[in-house]
Design a protein around this nucleic acid. Structure first.
Length: 292
DNA sequence: CGGCTTTGACCGGCGC
DNA sequence: GCGCCGGTCAAAGCCG
């Protein structure tokens, strides 16, 4: 209740408005996007195809990173159950993906999620108080993308239980919090609607599924239309932590068609387009840790 | 009745 | 220290 009234006008981002893409930042690693520790280029993600531009959207200047993905499907591998940001995403209702991004807190150790991961203890008894002091909470790697959809909660093959909803600062649309219903799976996702473009749904996955998709996606994985929205992203990603830059994408800024290619998620990753569907153009956007 | 959603309360981080 | 804010909990209610 009071949350609804606490919205102020502070912009949620820390935009590096006068910077190019800060490659010098050692924290950034394009391969962290899908966090495949054992494969050199698991997703066909080719950093050499990345390019960067800047554009203005409203009052903000965006540092834009685009990357090409290998169009081939890596169906020859058995899905690694513990595959990084494991989402099976199929979208419905003429949805189209326009953005993906990552946040990965690799360096920090997570203690916060342990009680939930290990259900053995009496986790339910009470809220965990008195976390280990001095140990910083680590966020799981995140993978976010925007989807043009009329429905907020896109079917992605997994089962989710909603555990919270909060009003979003600077946005009339609430943010919903979901947790994977599978036992011992701590994957979460947040869903919010862009306030600048209410037709866009921002989905953020956090964590790794430790199980396979409960639902069969093969039959109807071709939910994604070939069209992909690449309009300048609305500035409603207030959920992203303030110490991260946002690198949205904009098709208008990428005349080179090589920027757009199939998106081939790693196994356990969003199953976006059907392989037989026409070429799907995608660009990716990344969250980038800000220099302290 | 089990699974899920809703919703107010609570907690921790962070900035001032 | 205080207030704001994001994130989570958990009781209550809903629904098939």
């Amino acid at each position: 209740m009071s949350d609804q009234n606490n919205i102020n006008s502070n912009h949620p981002y820390n935009m590096g408005s006068d910077q190019g893409f800060p490659f010098s930042d050692h924290n950034f690693n394009p391969f962290m996007l899908f966090n495949h520790p054992h494969h050199q280029n698991p997703n066909g993600f080719d950093p050499s195809n990345m390019s960067f531009t800047n554009f203005l959207h409203g009052d903000a200047q965006y540092n834009t990173l685009s990357a090409a993905f290998d169009p081939s499907c890596s169906s020859s591998h058995e899905p690694p159950v513990n595959d990084s940001i494991s989402n099976c995403t199929k979208s419905n209702n003429n949805s189209s993906v326009s953005l993906s991004s990552l946040e990965a807190g690799v360096e920090e150790e997570s203690k916060d999620l342990q009680p939930k991961d290990c259900e053995d203890g009496d986790v339910k008894s009470k809220r965990v108080k008195g976390k280990n002091k001095g140990e910083k909470k680590q966020r799981e790697a995140r993978f976010a993308f925007m989807t043009k959809s009329e429905v907020d909660n896109l079917e992605d093959g997994y089962r989710w239980r909603k555990y919270g909803q909060k009003a979003v600062k600077n946005s009339p649309f609430p943010r919903s919090y979901y947790r994977c219903t599978s036992q011992k799976c701590n994957v979460k996702k947040r869903i919010e609607r862009s306030y600048e473009d209410p037709s866009m749904v921002i989905t953020t996955y956090e964590g790794q599924h430790n199980h396979h998709c409960p639902g069969t996606l093969r039959g109807n994985a071709a939910m994604l239309p070939p069209s992909v929205l690449l309009s300048p992203p609305p500035l409603s990603l207030s959920s992203f932590p303030q110490n991260f830059f946002l690198f949205p994408t904009s098709q208008q800024n990428h005349p080179n068609p090589s920027y757009f290619t199939h998106f081939n998620p790693p196994l356990g990753q969003p199953q976006l387009p059907d392989q037989s569907s026409p070429l799907v153009h995608m660009t990716s956007s990344f969250l980038h840790r800000r220099e302290p």
